[in-house]
Amino acid sequence: MNDIAHHAPDLPAIAATADWPAAREAPPFWTTGAVAATVWLAGSAINYHWPDLSPWARTPLLAMAQGALGVLLLGAAIFGGRTRQVRYFHPAGRWLVALGALLTVWVVLTAKTALLPLPFFPPPQSILEVYTDDYARLLESLWYSAWLLVPGFVAGALAGFGAGVAIGWSRTVHYWGHPILRIVGPLPATAWLPVAFFFFPSANSASIFLIALSTGFPVAVLTASGISGVNSAYYDIARTLGANERFLIARIAIPAALPSVFVGLFMGLGASFAVLIVAEMMGVKAGLGFYLQWAQGWAAYANLYGVLILMALLFSGLISLLFLVRDRVLAWQKELVRW
């Protein structure tokens, strides 16, 4: 009795002395950020002061960029530890350290010591040079590629979705359409390339068709399977509530199948990239794939890596965009595959 009476008033005191409030606040100093800043600043100094074996035009620019990033990181680490904008980058901290170090190692192994020989291992400054000096051609290639990819993907996605809904919904369409999907679907669209280039009036139209084909098949297959997999109780309930067939398709079947449709779009987008690059290398004399082939033909390895990096950014950007759209459309779903 006495014990309890004695201890009870203590409890709030214990809670108050505990370190809760401090633990909730963001640390004022971003340590990883400071480490990253040091790495980038050191890399900048090394790059600037250690002379190249054979001088590269863009070494100063690269060193400046490294230094600028280092200063930025230092500022963020010291002053911005509490701001939301800086905290957004906190998870990337260790990556920033690693990238800064990797870039410096790469600079040292190539431009400074040539331990990794040219032309296969161009130094980062030479890749930077590609962007600063050849940007017009790169942008043009990007533009040409977009003109194949966007119409092809959109047309393929729409056609695949329509076909998938029809196959998933109607028995008759399923009877005729499903075997075609089963047999022709697995054929990679690139295998159609020679035929398509022969039948279409231009390499461009043939490529757009093939991109559409490569997108359309996975979209159709996954839309169809999504629709035929819809819980039949969904239909039963809607039918008792007075839904007609149009309502069942538009308001029940399609929304229920959407998660599956997005998987199809994701696969189709991946396939369309492959077709785009191959088609540009084989027939269309423009675009990123063509640039890649040209760079290889001239052993311009810096250009080759430059365009590869650009393609990686473009494609991952497009996939991120698709996932963004999906997260919006499927906001009702809790569990989503993360990209």
């Binding site: 109780a233 229920a256 499927l330 779903q333």
Partner: peptide, 12 residues
């Protein structure tokens, strides 16, 4: 109208 054994709401 039938209230099913399972609520079966439309999740979307």
């Amino acid at each position: 109208l039938l209230v099913f054994q399972d609520p079966t709401l439309y999740p979307w």
